[in-house]
Nucleic acid binder design. Structure first.
Lengths: 107, 107
DNA sequence: TAGATCAATACCTATTCAGCTATGGATTAA
DNA sequence: TTAATCCATAGCTGAATAGGTATTGATCTA
Protein backbone atom coordinates (compact mmCIF):
# COMPACT_ATOMS: atom_id res chain seq x y z
CA UNK A 1 0.00 0.00 0.00
CA UNK A 2 2.99 2.25 0.57
CA UNK A 3 2.79 5.05 -1.95
CA UNK A 4 6.54 5.56 -1.85
CA UNK A 5 7.31 2.22 -3.46
CA UNK A 6 4.53 2.69 -5.95
CA UNK A 7 6.08 5.96 -7.08
CA UNK A 8 9.55 4.42 -7.29
CA UNK A 9 8.50 1.41 -9.33
CA UNK A 10 6.35 3.46 -11.66
CA UNK A 11 9.09 6.05 -12.13
CA UNK A 12 11.77 3.47 -12.90
CA UNK A 13 9.52 1.35 -15.11
CA UNK A 14 10.08 3.59 -18.12
CA UNK A 15 13.30 2.64 -20.01
CA UNK A 16 14.10 6.16 -21.16
CA UNK A 17 13.66 7.54 -17.66
CA UNK A 18 15.64 4.72 -16.09
CA UNK A 19 18.42 5.29 -18.61
CA UNK A 20 18.59 8.94 -17.63
CA UNK A 21 18.85 8.02 -13.97
CA UNK A 22 21.50 5.40 -14.73
CA UNK A 23 23.57 7.95 -16.62
CA UNK A 24 23.41 10.37 -13.73
CA UNK A 25 24.54 7.58 -11.42
CA UNK A 26 27.39 6.56 -13.71
CA UNK A 27 28.61 9.93 -14.90
CA UNK A 28 27.49 12.31 -12.18
CA UNK A 29 25.95 15.73 -12.63
CA UNK A 30 24.84 16.65 -16.15
CA UNK A 31 22.97 19.48 -17.81
CA UNK A 32 19.71 18.93 -19.65
CA UNK A 33 21.50 19.62 -22.92
CA UNK A 34 24.19 17.03 -22.26
CA UNK A 35 21.58 14.46 -21.30
CA UNK A 36 19.47 15.23 -24.36
CA UNK A 37 22.45 14.76 -26.68
CA UNK A 38 22.51 10.99 -26.10
CA UNK A 39 19.00 10.31 -24.85
CA UNK A 40 17.47 9.48 -28.22
CA UNK A 41 14.45 11.67 -27.51
CA UNK A 42 13.71 15.38 -27.79
CA UNK A 43 14.71 17.95 -25.19
CA UNK A 44 11.17 18.54 -23.90
CA UNK A 45 10.80 14.82 -23.31
CA UNK A 46 14.06 14.76 -21.37
CA UNK A 47 12.90 17.71 -19.26
CA UNK A 48 9.62 15.98 -18.55
CA UNK A 49 11.32 12.76 -17.46
CA UNK A 50 13.73 14.70 -15.27
CA UNK A 51 10.75 16.41 -13.67
CA UNK A 52 9.19 13.05 -12.87
CA UNK A 53 12.49 11.73 -11.51
CA UNK A 54 12.73 14.84 -9.35
CA UNK A 55 9.22 14.39 -7.99
CA UNK A 56 10.17 10.83 -7.05
CA UNK A 57 13.19 12.19 -5.20
CA UNK A 58 15.58 10.29 -7.46
CA UNK A 59 17.35 13.40 -8.76
CA UNK A 60 17.95 16.96 -7.66
CA UNK A 61 18.47 20.01 -9.81
CA UNK A 62 20.79 22.96 -9.52
CA UNK A 63 20.29 26.12 -11.57
CA UNK A 64 23.31 27.91 -12.96
CA UNK A 65 22.58 30.74 -15.35
CA UNK A 66 20.37 29.44 -18.10
CA UNK A 67 21.30 25.83 -17.64
CA UNK A 68 20.03 23.31 -15.13
CA UNK A 69 22.30 20.62 -13.72
CA UNK A 70 20.77 17.36 -12.57
CA UNK A 71 22.33 14.76 -10.29
CA UNK A 72 21.23 11.41 -8.88
CA UNK A 73 19.99 11.13 -5.32
CA UNK A 74 20.89 7.56 -4.52
CA UNK A 75 19.26 7.62 -1.10
CA UNK A 76 15.89 7.64 -2.77
CA UNK A 77 16.44 3.99 -3.72
CA UNK A 78 16.30 2.95 -0.06
CA UNK A 79 12.58 2.09 -0.03
CA UNK A 80 13.18 -0.18 -2.99
CA UNK A 81 15.96 -2.00 -1.18
CA UNK A 82 13.75 -2.20 1.90
CA UNK A 83 10.93 -3.70 -0.12
CA UNK A 84 13.07 -6.44 -1.66
CA UNK A 85 14.56 -7.19 1.76
CA UNK A 86 11.07 -7.42 3.22
CA UNK A 87 9.95 -9.84 0.52
CA UNK A 88 13.07 -11.93 1.05
CA UNK A 89 12.39 -11.80 4.77
CA UNK A 90 8.91 -13.23 4.42
CA UNK A 91 10.34 -15.95 2.27
CA UNK A 92 12.97 -16.73 4.86
CA UNK A 93 10.43 -16.77 7.70
CA UNK A 94 8.23 -19.19 5.89
CA UNK A 95 11.24 -21.35 5.28
CA UNK A 96 12.12 -21.23 8.97
CA UNK A 97 8.54 -22.08 9.91
CA UNK A 98 8.76 -25.10 7.66
CA UNK A 99 12.02 -26.13 9.25
CA UNK A 100 10.49 -25.78 12.71
CA UNK A 101 7.53 -27.83 11.65
CA UNK A 102 9.70 -30.58 10.26
CA UNK A 103 11.78 -30.48 13.42
CA UNK A 104 8.70 -30.90 15.60
CA UNK A 105 7.43 -33.67 13.39
CA UNK A 106 10.77 -35.39 13.75
CA UNK A 107 10.44 -35.66 17.49
CA UNK B 1 19.48 -1.71 -21.65
CA UNK B 2 18.96 -5.07 -19.99
CA UNK B 3 15.52 -6.34 -20.89
CA UNK B 4 15.33 -8.36 -17.69
CA UNK B 5 15.23 -5.32 -15.46
CA UNK B 6 12.79 -3.64 -17.76
CA UNK B 7 10.40 -6.55 -17.41
CA UNK B 8 10.80 -6.62 -13.64
CA UNK B 9 10.21 -2.91 -13.13
CA UNK B 10 7.25 -2.85 -15.50
CA UNK B 11 5.72 -5.93 -13.90
CA UNK B 12 6.04 -4.61 -10.36
CA UNK B 13 4.93 -1.08 -11.26
CA UNK B 14 1.26 -2.02 -11.12
CA UNK B 15 -0.10 -1.83 -7.54
CA UNK B 16 -2.60 -4.64 -7.93
CA UNK B 17 0.01 -6.93 -9.41
CA UNK B 18 2.59 -6.01 -6.79
CA UNK B 19 0.03 -6.64 -4.05
CA UNK B 20 -0.59 -10.13 -5.42
CA UNK B 21 3.12 -10.87 -5.44
CA UNK B 22 3.49 -9.48 -1.91
CA UNK B 23 0.69 -11.71 -0.66
CA UNK B 24 2.33 -14.76 -2.19
CA UNK B 25 5.60 -13.78 -0.49
CA UNK B 26 3.91 -13.23 2.87
CA UNK B 27 1.44 -16.06 2.92
CA UNK B 28 2.92 -18.62 0.57
CA UNK B 29 1.11 -20.65 -2.04
CA UNK B 30 -2.47 -19.60 -2.82
CA UNK B 31 -5.15 -20.56 -5.31
CA UNK B 32 -6.57 -18.07 -7.79
CA UNK B 33 -9.84 -18.11 -5.88
CA UNK B 34 -8.19 -17.31 -2.56
CA UNK B 35 -6.23 -14.48 -4.16
CA UNK B 36 -9.31 -13.09 -5.88
CA UNK B 37 -11.25 -13.02 -2.60
CA UNK B 38 -9.16 -10.12 -1.26
CA UNK B 39 -7.70 -8.62 -4.41
CA UNK B 40 -10.42 -6.04 -4.97
CA UNK B 41 -10.66 -6.90 -8.65
CA UNK B 42 -12.43 -9.61 -10.65
CA UNK B 43 -11.16 -13.13 -11.12
CA UNK B 44 -10.20 -12.69 -14.78
CA UNK B 45 -8.15 -9.66 -13.84
CA UNK B 46 -6.36 -11.66 -11.16
CA UNK B 47 -5.66 -14.45 -13.63
CA UNK B 48 -4.27 -11.95 -16.11
CA UNK B 49 -1.96 -10.38 -13.53
CA UNK B 50 -0.78 -13.80 -12.40
CA UNK B 51 0.00 -14.61 -16.02
CA UNK B 52 2.13 -11.51 -16.31
CA UNK B 53 3.89 -12.27 -13.03
CA UNK B 54 4.56 -15.77 -14.32
CA UNK B 55 6.01 -14.49 -17.58
CA UNK B 56 8.35 -12.29 -15.54
CA UNK B 57 9.44 -15.35 -13.58
CA UNK B 58 8.15 -13.89 -10.32
CA UNK B 59 5.67 -16.69 -9.67
CA UNK B 60 5.18 -20.32 -10.62
CA UNK B 61 1.93 -22.25 -10.93
CA UNK B 62 0.93 -25.75 -9.96
CA UNK B 63 -2.23 -27.36 -11.22
CA UNK B 64 -4.25 -29.54 -8.90
CA UNK B 65 -7.60 -30.66 -10.11
CA UNK B 66 -9.59 -27.69 -11.26
CA UNK B 67 -7.64 -25.20 -9.21
CA UNK B 68 -4.30 -23.56 -9.85
CA UNK B 69 -1.91 -22.82 -7.02
CA UNK B 70 0.53 -19.93 -7.40
CA UNK B 71 3.67 -19.29 -5.37
CA UNK B 72 6.34 -16.58 -5.36
CA UNK B 73 9.71 -17.21 -6.96
CA UNK B 74 11.90 -14.93 -4.92
CA UNK B 75 15.02 -15.61 -6.97
CA UNK B 76 13.53 -13.60 -9.79
CA UNK B 77 14.16 -10.45 -7.75
CA UNK B 78 17.92 -10.91 -8.06
CA UNK B 79 18.34 -8.68 -11.15
CA UNK B 80 16.56 -5.92 -9.27
CA UNK B 81 18.95 -6.24 -6.34
CA UNK B 82 21.86 -6.33 -8.78
CA UNK B 83 20.67 -3.16 -10.44
CA UNK B 84 20.40 -1.20 -7.22
CA UNK B 85 23.80 -2.47 -6.14
CA UNK B 86 25.25 -1.39 -9.46
CA UNK B 87 23.79 2.09 -9.13
CA UNK B 88 25.11 2.33 -5.58
CA UNK B 89 28.47 1.12 -6.88
CA UNK B 90 28.72 3.89 -9.46
CA UNK B 91 27.86 6.36 -6.74
CA UNK B 92 30.56 4.95 -4.50
CA UNK B 93 33.17 5.00 -7.27
CA UNK B 94 32.46 8.60 -8.05
CA UNK B 95 32.74 9.37 -4.38
CA UNK B 96 36.12 7.63 -4.25
CA UNK B 97 37.22 9.50 -7.34
CA UNK B 98 36.31 12.73 -5.62
CA UNK B 99 38.24 11.69 -2.54
CA UNK B 100 41.25 10.87 -4.70
CA UNK B 101 40.98 14.21 -6.42
CA UNK B 102 40.80 16.09 -3.15
CA UNK B 103 43.76 14.09 -1.88
CA UNK B 104 45.82 14.98 -4.93
CA UNK B 105 44.78 18.62 -4.67
CA UNK B 106 45.85 18.57 -1.07
CA UNK B 107 49.41 17.69 -1.95
C1' DT C 1 -25.20 -37.77 -16.53
C1' DA C 2 -26.39 -32.98 -15.09
C1' DG C 3 -25.21 -29.26 -12.60
C1' DA C 4 -21.91 -26.58 -10.23
C1' DT C 5 -17.35 -24.66 -9.50
C1' DC C 6 -12.63 -23.03 -10.85
C1' DA C 7 -9.56 -20.77 -13.87
C1' DA C 8 -8.34 -18.99 -18.34
C1' DT C 9 -9.47 -16.64 -22.64
C1' DA C 10 -11.84 -13.36 -25.76
C1' DC C 11 -13.40 -8.98 -26.45
C1' DC C 12 -14.39 -4.25 -25.41
C1' DT C 13 -13.74 0.40 -23.15
C1' DA C 14 -11.63 4.05 -20.74
C1' DT C 15 -7.62 5.89 -19.07
C1' DT C 16 -2.88 6.75 -18.82
C1' DC C 17 1.23 8.31 -20.69
C1' DA C 18 5.40 8.66 -23.74
C1' DG C 19 6.54 11.05 -27.56
C1' DC C 20 6.12 14.93 -30.70
C1' DT C 21 5.96 20.23 -32.12
C1' DA C 22 5.30 24.90 -30.87
C1' DT C 23 6.09 28.35 -27.75
C1' DG C 24 7.48 31.20 -23.73
C1' DG C 25 10.74 32.88 -20.13
C1' DA C 26 15.17 33.60 -18.83
C1' DT C 27 19.96 34.23 -19.50
C1' DT C 28 24.14 35.05 -22.29
C1' DA C 29 26.56 36.97 -26.32
C1' DA C 30 27.23 40.11 -30.14
C1' DT D 1 19.44 46.23 -27.70
C1' DT D 2 19.08 42.28 -30.64
C1' DA D 3 19.96 37.73 -31.51
C1' DA D 4 20.91 33.30 -29.92
C1' DT D 5 20.86 29.64 -26.53
C1' DC D 6 18.96 26.82 -22.72
C1' DC D 7 15.28 24.83 -20.44
C1' DA D 8 10.37 24.37 -19.16
C1' DT D 9 5.53 24.32 -20.28
C1' DA D 10 1.36 23.70 -23.17
C1' DG D 11 -1.25 21.09 -26.16
C1' DC D 12 -1.88 17.15 -29.07
C1' DT D 13 -1.84 12.17 -30.74
C1' DG D 14 -1.23 7.35 -30.76
C1' DA D 15 -0.14 3.25 -28.27
C1' DA D 16 -0.32 0.48 -24.29
C1' DT D 17 -2.93 -1.50 -20.68
C1' DA D 18 -5.86 -2.17 -16.49
C1' DG D 19 -10.38 -3.04 -15.71
C1' DG D 20 -14.90 -4.93 -16.83
C1' DT D 21 -18.42 -8.78 -18.69
C1' DA D 22 -19.26 -12.91 -21.26
C1' DT D 23 -17.87 -17.33 -22.26
C1' DT D 24 -15.37 -21.71 -22.65
C1' DG D 25 -12.82 -25.78 -20.94
C1' DA D 26 -11.98 -28.63 -17.37
C1' DT D 27 -12.90 -30.88 -13.14
C1' DC D 28 -15.58 -32.18 -9.18
C1' DT D 29 -20.14 -33.57 -7.04
C1' DA D 30 -24.89 -35.00 -6.43
Amino acid sequence: MSDVQDTLFKTLADPTRRALFERLCREGEKTVGALTARAGVSQPVVSKHLGILKQAGLVRDRHEGRQTHYSAQLGALAPLVDWTSEMAGFWQNRFNDLEDLLKRMDQ
